[in-house]
Every structure is written in C-alpha cells, then in structure tokens.
Simulated assay, not measured.
Amino acid sequence: MANPRKTPALVGELVAEFAGTMILILFGVAVVAQVVAAKGLGDHDSIAWAWGLGVMLGVYTAGRISGAHLNPAVTVALAAFKGFEWRKVLPYSLAQTAGAFVAALIVRWNYSEVLAAFDPGHTIKSQFIFSTLPGNGALPVGTWGAFRDQVIGTAILLFLILAITDLGNSPPGANLTPFVIGLVVVAIGMAWGTNAGYAINPARDFGPRLASFLTGYQTAWRDQYGQLYFWVPIVGPLIGGLVGAALYQVLIGRSLPIAEEPEPGRLPTKPGPETA
C-alpha cells in the first residue's frame, strides 16, 4: 500500500510559491520584452495570452502544495475571508516576490543584447518591460488614475477567483481550475490593461522592478513624470483584493449552500455539488 504524502511543511509551501511565481514571471515579463524590444514579434494580444498562460502554468506548478496564490493580494484576501493562516501571509508574500525577482533576472540576462540595442541607456523607454507605469508610459494617466485602476482590476481578479474556487458554487473540476483562472487574467489584460498595465499583483511588479534597478535601470522607482510610483502596484492590489473578496462574500458567497471546503488557501480537489 502506498503511503499518502504528508501535509507539506511551510518550507515546502514557500518553495512552491517561489517556483509558481517564477514560472508566471518567466512567461509574463519575457513576452513583454519580446513584443517591446524585438519589434514585430507579437502584439498586445500575445502579451495578454502569455500572462494568462503563465498564471495557468504557475498554478499547475504549485497548486497542490501551497494553493498557488502567486500574489500577495490573493494571500491577504484569503487570510481575511477564507481562513488562510495570517502567520503565513508574510512568508508567502516574500516567497512570491523572490520568485518574481529571480525570474526577472533571468529574462533580463537572456534579453540583454536585445535590450541594449533597443534602449542603450536602460531608460524608462524599456523599463515598463519589467514593471508597470501609468498609462503604459505613453497615455495621459496619472498616479491616482493608475491607483484606481489597480484597485478595480484586482477586485475583479479576487471576486472571480473566489467564484471559481468556491465548492458551493459551480466550480470547474480541480484539474481545470488553473486553466479558468488563467483565462480570467487574459480577460483582465484585454479589458483593463490601459491605465496601469494590469499588474494586479504586488510581487509581479516589485520583484521585477527591483531586478531592473539592480541591473541598470536607475528610473525603476519612478514613473514617466518623475513621481515615486512603485507603491501604486503594491497598495492598490492589496486594497482591491480585499474589496473584491468582500464583494464576493456579500453578493454571492453568503447565498450559496454550505459545501465541504478544501484546506484554507488551497485549490479545491474535487468538484462541488453542482458538478459532481
């Protein structure tokens, strides 16, 4: 008789969050580098699809071990509304940020020649490959417009993540959950990518931003107007995630039948009553 796996220790969960977020950023930041710096190889749609596929693959990587949050905004919202342990919030967030940081360094290294040819001074012209800017660095959107956008975009993300993973609702089978969450990110990218580049994830933005700063981008912390901007894709998503999770609980969650829930912070491992 095969021995069942033991419940993963915290270190295993953190390694899974690191690996899953690294996979996400390896696809997400790399596709922006390809589209922006290697002109003609892709467009906005390829960016949206690659980010969504990166999320899907990251969730498949880490889902059964850590729940595959891959995003501090997700971790905080699950702690506030779904019983995830608060003591794990900071370690998870640090692991996610570290995974994003390492992935961005790999992308920076791999595309070093292309970036040097496209933007020899490593200025804000190519900075938004790694981290977001208001109006994508070109449109007339300021700090507070971008902040508003990040709150709304992340609220949508968390609302839908809870809808998709709630066993009392009509969730997809556990093996399809990462695929559907990836489609959510594709949709957000296609509909909400203008004002602030849809970071909707503090780790996704801060990790690559730090990596770019350490590898020559001295403008990394500011936007195209010279304003300190790095805090916007951190604070905005954290607030938006709480708003989206709260709205889901008020509008949908409290009206659903009680269902057997997975361990807090984990993906469901079997279909809910509507899909059984």
Results as ranks from 00 to 15, higher is better:
Met1Cys: 10
Ala2Phe: 14
Asn3Ser: 14
Pro4Lys: 15
Arg5Tyr: 15
Pro8Gln: 13
Leu10Gly: 03
Leu10Tyr: 15
Val11Gln: 11
Val15Cys: 11
Val15Arg: 14
Ala16Arg: 11
Glu17Met: 13
Phe18Ile: 08
Ile23Pro: 03
Leu24Glu: 04
Ile25His: 02
Ile25Ser: 02
Phe27Asp: 02
Phe27Met: 11
Phe27Ser: 08
Ala30Asn: 04
Ala33Leu: 05
Ala33Ser: 08
Ala37Ile: 01
Ala37Gln: 06
Ala38Glu: 11
Ala38Pro: 01
Gly40Ala: 10
Gly42Asp: 09
Gly42Gln: 11
Gly42Thr: 09
Ile47Cys: 06
Ile47Trp: 04
Gly52Lys: 00
Leu53Arg: 01
Met56Trp: 02
Val59His: 08
Val59Met: 12
Gly63Ile: 10
Ser66Phe: 05
Gly67Thr: 03
Pro72Cys: 13
Val74Met: 09
Thr75Ser: 14
Thr75Pro: 01
Thr75Ala: 09
Thr75Asp: 08
Ala77Phe: 10
Gly83Asn: 14
Lys88Met: 08
Leu90Glu: 03
Gln96Thr: 08
Thr97Pro: 01
Ala98Gln: 04
Ala98Arg: 09
Gly99Lys: 02
Ala100Leu: 04
Ile106Asn: 05
Val114His: 13
Phe118His: 12
Ile124Glu: 00
Gln127Ser: 08
Asn136Phe: 01
Leu139Ala: 09
Pro140Asn: 13
Trp144Ile: 05
Gly145Met: 03
Ala146Arg: 02
Arg148Val: 12
Asp149Val: 01
Val151Trp: 01
Thr154Asp: 04
Ala155Ile: 10
Leu157Met: 10
Leu162Gly: 04
Leu162Val: 06
Thr165Gln: 06
Asn169Asp: 07
Ser170Leu: 13
Pro171Phe: 14
Pro172His: 14
Ala174Arg: 12
Ala174Pro: 12
Ala174Met: 08
Asn175Val: 15
Thr177Tyr: 04
Leu183Ile: 07
Met190His: 11
Ala191Met: 09
Thr194Ser: 10
Ala199Pro: 03
Asn201Lys: 11
Asn201Thr: 01
Pro202Leu: 14
Thr215Ser: 13
Gln218Leu: 12
Arg222Val: 15
Tyr225Val: 10
Gly226Thr: 05
Gly226Arg: 06
Gln227Met: 09
Gly244Lys: 06
Ala245Gln: 04
Ile252Leu: 12
Gly253Pro: 00
Leu256Lys: 11
Pro262Thr: 11
Gly265Cys: 05
Lys270Pro: 00
Glu274Cys: 04
